[in-house]
Design a protein around this nucleic acid. Structure first.
Lengths: 123, 123
DNA sequence: AACGCAAACTAGACTCGGTCCAAGTTCGAA
DNA sequence: TTCGAACTTGGACCGAGTCTAGTTTGCGTT
């Protein structure tokens, strides 16, 4: 655990925002100015491989966003204008996919994407 | 409606595959070899704006995929290995998002993403 | 404390999907 | 037939992410 990784991890923990790599780079750079972009990407990929983060991209995204909650199942609330993503804790079960619709897939996960416009973008 | 647009539209209609722009370019190019990439992108964007197509991107994908079904609500079955996306017709209602979880969003759509591994990628 | 090595970091070149733009082409209305 | 608007083309450009070569860092060993 190096200073660089700690800086990246700190930026992500404790919120349910899904930041882009660039946002992480910017925020972590305020703590550790000589941090390089490559290290941010390396660290994000490692954390993702370890299962600590999840990669999301809605909105036909050309940029990835990193979900700090890699473990608990949850849904997503997405602003289709600005791309903001927030977590939603599940309260009901997600409808199961009928066997005939599975097309031979081995299913791992099912989550709901709620799309709309956030307050900031509406005003 | 020009020959180029017809070629692009033809590639997309009649299946429930979500092709990438490059795949569309390639397939449409077999019919109309002098077709340019820019035209493919222009046409895809226009069709999306018109509501005929929907842009999807799951799996933290950096490339967009175009869903030929722009009108009917439906869910998605995604292969997390190769990125293949297929439509699934809804049979049950999607659980509604409780008001207290909406955070001021104006909701437009809710759909389910089923993630797994397709038969090809498993073998 | 000094050494040596592996792991991690950096900067910059590179790739790739997508967009932009200036110039050329097509098509329909007058 | 002419004219203008809309469409298409190819190539330059942009931005997110990856790769790589060289440097720095941290740590176990002596």
């Amino acid at each position: 655990m190096t200073a660089q990784r700690r800086a990246v991890a700190q930026v992500l923990t404790g919120n349910n925002l899904h930041l882009t790599a660039d946002e992480v780079f910017e925020r972590a750079g305020q703590v550790l100015p000589e941090l390089s972009r490559a290290t941010v990407y390396n660290t994000l990929n490692e954390l993702t491989d370890m299962g600590e983060l999840r990669v999301t991209s809605f909105d036909g995204g050309l940029t990835r966003r990193y979900d700090p909650n890699g473990h608990d199942p949850h849904h997503h609330l997405v602003c289709t204008v600005c791309g903001l993503v927030q977590d939603v804790l599940p309260e009901q079960d997600v409808p199961e996919l009928p066997r005939r619709d599975r097309r031979g897939f081995e299913l791992h996960d099912a989550h709901i994407v709620y799309e709309g416009i956030c307050t900031d973008c509406r005003s």
